[in-house]
């Protein structure tokens, strides 16, 4: 059967790839004035301007630190509860499952406002730890969902097989579960970092303007910088998840039985 691939590539190109290209091109050219008949003018000023801003670097580092912590906690909670939900049947399982997914629907703004007083009381307001905690609210339910699904795919029998062959709990986790959950770990990495990087309001409320992450300097930038710098800044936002992804991928390579991933895929 012959298929015309054009519709797909056209749609994907316009809807999903073009916006990225748009940002990239704008970041390397002067602000556009096509209405005056001007063409593209290549420049690197936007990037040097962006990188010369000291706020950008500290915000980037804080974003990475907070993102990494949020990711670690997400992996821990997601792996444990995903395993419990997928591989065990116990009373109250459906209720627990709905409860764990419910935070997706609760406005995180309401939660942050509610937790604000509590954070002040326990001394976590205006600290990065407090921000990490509040970033867990919109991320953890997704991680649980992803790992729940992943553990169901792997299935109990494969784990029992490993148990029968004498693997301890830890060895089983490292040699069977982690390698087979690799794809899900990647998804969780991406999702967690991007969601964490998206939070302005709740970071502002809990961080109290003291914890400066990238979204916190986005609005001030918008008021002062031109389109080229803003485009460069926008691209910078997407680079962080990529960096985190590469780090996680590198760590995953350290696991046993991690070679030749391309052969396993088919």
């Amino acid at each position: 059967m012959k298929r015309n691939h054009l519709p797909f590539y056209l749609t994907a190109g316009l809807l999903f790839i073009a916006p990225t290209l748009l940002l990239l091109v704008q970041s390397f050219t002067a602000p556009w004035r096509f209405q005056r008949g001007e063409g593209l003018q290549f420049q690197l000023n936007s990037w040097s301007l962006l990188f010369s801003d000291p706020n950008l670097w500290s915000a980037t580092i804080w974003s990475l630190v907070i993102g990494a912590m949020v990711l670690l906690i997400n992996l821990f909670i997601g792996l444990t509860s995903g395993k419990a939900l997928a591989l065990y049947s116990f009373r109250g399982r459906t209720i627990v499952e709905s409860l764990l997914l419910a935070p997706i629907l609760i406005p995180v703004l309401a939660v942050a406002m509610g937790l604000h007083l509590f954070m002040i009381r326990v001394g976590l307001a205006d600290t990065w730890v407090g921000v990490v905690l509040i970033h867990l609210v919109p991320t953890v339910p997704y991680s649980i969902k992803i790992f729940h699904h992943a553990y169901s795919e792997v299935g109990r029998p494969l784990m029992e097989q490993s148990q029968m062959l004498g693997a301890s709990v830890i060895k089983q986790f490292l040699t069977i579960e982690m390698p087979l959950l690799r794809t899900s770990i990647r998804s969780v990495t991406f999702l967690t970092i991007v969601i964490s990087l998206s939070q302005y309001a709740i970071t502002a409320i809990i961080g109290g303007g003291q914890v400066i992450t990238l979204p916190m300097i986005f609005f001030p930038f918008l008021d002062t910088a031109n389109a080229s710098v803003m485009a460069a800044f926008s691209v910078w936002f997407a680079i962080l998840p990529l960096v985190m992804y590469i780090v996680v991928e590198g760590l995953l390579q350290l696991l046993p039985y991690s070679r030749k991933p391309w052969r396993i895929q088919t």
Binding site: Q161, S162, G166, K171
Partner: peptide
């Protein structure tokens, strides 16, 4: 030793690694 109805080989290991797994553990 237990052999199940399904082979349940570990998909991310080679044949040799699968066989060696138990002894390895």
């Amino acid at each position: 030793g237990l052999v199940f109805q399904q082979p349940l080989l570990f998909p991310h290991m080679t044949v040799a690694e699968n066989i060696a797994y138990g002894a390895h553990m």
